[in-house]
């Protein structure tokens, strides 16, 4: 298990889009270290022969027919929007193009 530093948390907070103060970063590093320390033994339990389970029950091929349902009106779609203009969601400038 690697050490979880303030910088680790800063990186994670960037990935998770949560702004954090210096104090919060420090505190979170300590808490995360404790939690990860407590759960890390998980990685030593199962060998390569144990398959991973991502769904609790073995369902498969759940699909729907390609039939159009009732869409929301633009008004309904925008009803909860923090900001809107011309029937669209409005957001501040985007820093980087993907």
């Amino acid at each position: 298990m690697s050490e979880i530093t303030r910088d680790t948390v800063a990186h994670l907070a960037t990935l998770a889009h949560i702004e954090m103060s210096e104090e919060q970063l420090q505190a979170m590093a300590g808490e995360l270290q404790q939690i990860v320390g407590a759960v890390a033994q998980v990685s030593e339990v199962a060998g390569d022969d144990v398959p991973a389970t991502s769904h609790p029950l073995p369902l498969r091929n759940v699909m729907r027919e390609d039939v159009v349902g009732e869409p929301l009106t633009a008004e309904e779609a925008l009803s909860g929007a923090p900001d809107a203009e011309d029937g669209q969601f409005k957001v501040p400038a985007i820093l980087e193009e993907d």
Binding site: V62, M63, R64, E65, D66, V67, V68, G69, E70, P71, L72, T73, A74, A77, L78, G80, D86, G87, Q88, F89
Partner: peptide
């Protein structure tokens, strides 16, 4: 089940699922 159509008025081809509203779930189009 929102319509897949080009050129319509903005935000008229959405459902709660395509807007990612709280609580929604996806179902695969066969």
């Amino acid at each position: 089940a929102a319509p897949n159509a080009f050129g319509d008025q903005p935000n008229t081809n959405t459902t709660p699922v395509s807007l990612g509203l709280p609580g929604v779930l996806p179902v695969v189009n066969k």
